[in-house]
């Protein structure tokens, strides 16, 4: 039985797809058979971030509508053995996803995989609700910014009521907070919400903290999940996040502001 994890946020542009790709990569690098599914029907992007956009033949909607088998639609990752991608379709038909169809796909993936990551679309419409409906755990991606925090709280409300676990009165979905685009210098300056404040307001466990990093754009430019950039702060922060998802106790990094010494200011920092 696979563990189903939804990566969600409510607000768009906070790093859901980047995080889904990075976490899926990290889980697979740790030897777990992992599949990551793009639920953003009409606006697929996970394939780009994973660097497999030219290998998409069939997609999730094709599988649900019986036009292709699951194995035809799954794309094997070029870099990591245990990793597969199930892309979203570019069709504009919003009703292309059905609850029964998604359930069937997840059920058959569940037989072969250890982890199923569902990359949710932004918003709280059908696609987002279907992405979270069957989840066992949720990674709520949040930026240290008011609208993102508020939307995350809305999503927490949905996770607690509009999911299979909630409707069946089962053990609730395990909710994890993932803070992205965190800038310790601005927090130190008092111009950005600090992680304690966000955790206090949303009242869920912190699973990871990803610093704002040049490595993220560099990774998406190349279509290589940032986890592979093991020298970068963001890459290491995602690796830590994956370890915590696997139940390990890893101390938090990259959350403290290091004032630059005069010398390093003059000569410039190293690669971030």
């Amino acid at each position: 039985m696979a563990k189903i994890i939804v990566v969600t946020s409510g607000k768009g542009g906070v790093g859901k797809t980047t995080s889904a790709a990075a976490i899926a990569t990290g889980l697979a690098l740790r030897g777990n058979k992992t599949v990551v599914i793009d639920f953003d029907v009409g606006l697929r992007n996970l394939d780009l971030i994973m660097g497999c956009e030219r290998r998409v033949v069939y997609d999730l909607v094709n599988v649900i509508q019986g036009e292709a088998g699951l194995n035809q639609a799954l794309i094997r990752d070029k870099r990591v053995d245990n990793l597969h991608i199930l892309p979203a379709s570019q069709t504009r038909d919003k009703d292309a996803l059905t609850s029964e169809g998604v359930e069937k796909v997840l059920e058959s993936l569940s037989e072969d995989f250890d982890y199923i990551l569902c990359d949710s679309p932004a918003g709280i419409e059908r696609g987002a609700q279907l992405a979270m409906y069957f989840a066992d755990e949720a990674v709520v991606v949040t930026n240290p910014e008011v609208s993102s925090v508020r939307d995350s709280d809305r999503i927490l409300g949905l996770l607690a009521s509009k999911t299979r676990r909630a409707e069946r009165n089962q053990e609730p979905i395990k909710e994890h907070l993932l803070i992205t685009r965190y800038n310790p210098a601005r927090v130190d300056h008092g111009d950005m919400l600090n992680l304690e404040d966000i955790r206090e307001i949303l009242a869920i466990d912190l699973i990871g903290l990803i610093p704002e990093s040049e490595a993220v754009l560099r990774a998406s430019n190349q279509g290589i999940p940032v986890t592979h950039d093991a020298n970068s702060d963001a890459g290491q922060a995602y690796t830590d996040t994956v370890s915590r998802l696997l139940g390990e106790d890893v101390p938090l990094r990259f959350h403290e502001y290091q004032k630059k010494s005069l010398l390093s200011r003059v000569f410039g920092g190293g690669r971030r």
Partner: peptide, 22 residues
């Protein structure tokens, strides 16, 4: 007043309100 603490206060109010409606 630092803008981050203004953000926190505003969020605490709006989130409490949202939860009341949940």
């Amino acid at each position: 007043k630092k803008s981050a603490s203004v953000a926190k206060e505003r969020l605490q109010i709006i989130v409490a309100h949202q939860r009341g409606q949940r």
